[in-house]
Write a protein that binds this DNA or RNA. Structure first.
Lengths: 193, 193
DNA sequence: GTCTATAGCCCGATAGAC
DNA sequence: GTCTATCGGGCTATAGAC
């Protein structure tokens, strides 16, 4: 019988939380089943293979990322404000744990990931860098700030720095590390006139 | 009978290469045994548990890192040159694969790592940031360059950025990405007078 | 759609012969 | 020190009852 709250959705949400904390290789169908309150065989009904589940988790949250970026564009106009909001949203970790971007975690596992998941990871990176490049370019065009490198290079530096900051924050179990590094990074990248 | 070339050393070297490419969870004693040309039981003789092997791999290469940093200090005096050398050495990947720092990879697995390995990962981060802070501080003191943030903050930004750059390079399977991001990062951080 | 049961594999680890 | 043999467990995945 179909659950009142869609089972596939609950599986996706649970798998996302596990992947965001443990990555792909270190979570199992048994972990998901236990949390959702079903058996592993039921997960296979909705997602035949683990790679299917992981791919759909990525696709689901890439869509959410795109929506988040669109919301930033809608709510704020100043490029510097948009960047601050982006940094802050990335910094919202699960519960009270350090923040972690699914994309950054999976990037570390790339050589052992199913190719279809790797495709999503590269898409994640591309989505973020495309948006960052545009916002950074806008900032230069409107003289909101100036850059010492090209917008597309600054975008890659910013995204890489935030990913490294999340890893450092989780490794040292210190949430504040992300914010410290993120703000220093913005200070170093963006110059007011 | 003891091997002509110490078996424990060969195990350590092989385990290091596997950990640098796959991380901790995705390599097995079987992988190491096959490459070294022995049986898994023989590895257990030298390293009783997998956590023992991983800890010793980390300790071994932390020592190598310290030696490398000391060599940079010995060979070069200009702080900017020292930073460039640091970036270049980190960028030397295995074979023709993208560069990857053992520490950055393991940081992604922290929540699933044996605590004794986590201790080494934090030590790795600390070693690098201590050295970078000193070199960056030297650069400011000798007016070789100036910083827009405190040396300890710039050190964290630099290390995080390089870690993120390695992950991006490996995810997109593009070695040049590391160099591009690293140079942009240095350009943004260091200002000449 | 969810279950029980199980296949088949890989894993880390140990016992004991040599 | 290295081997063979094996244990116990976790994993992904499937078959088939309900």
């Amino acid at each position: 019988m179909e659950q009142h709250v869609n089972t596939a959705e609950r599986i996706l949400e649970t798998a996302f939380e596990l992947m965001q904390t443990r990555g792909y290789n270190a979570f199992s169908y048994a972990d998901v089943a236990e949390r959702v309150g079903i058996r592993t065989a039921s997960i296979h009904y909705h997602f035949p293979a683990k790679s299917d589940l992981a791919r759909e988790v990525c696709a689901h949250y890439r869509t959410a990322l795109i929506a988040t970026l669109a919301a930033i564009d809608r709510d704020l106009t100043d490029p510097a404000d948009r960047l601050q909001r982006f940094v802050a949203l990335q910094g919202r970790g699960l519960d009270h744990r350090p923040p972690m971007c699914l994309c950054a975690l999976l990037a570390a596992e790339c050589p052992t990931l199913p190719e279809e998941v790797n495709v999503e990871v590269r898409g994640f990176l591309s989505d973020q860098e495309t948006w960052l490049t545009r916002v950074l370019g806008d900032g230069v065009a409107t003289s909101a700030f100036c850059l010492t490198v090209a917008p597309e290079d600054a975008a890659q530096v910013l995204r890489a720095g935030l990913a490294g900051a999340m890893l450092a924050a989780r490794a040292s179990n210190d949430r504040t590390r992300y914010d410290t590094i993120a703000q220093s990074l913005l200070t170093a990248l963006l110059r007011s006139h």
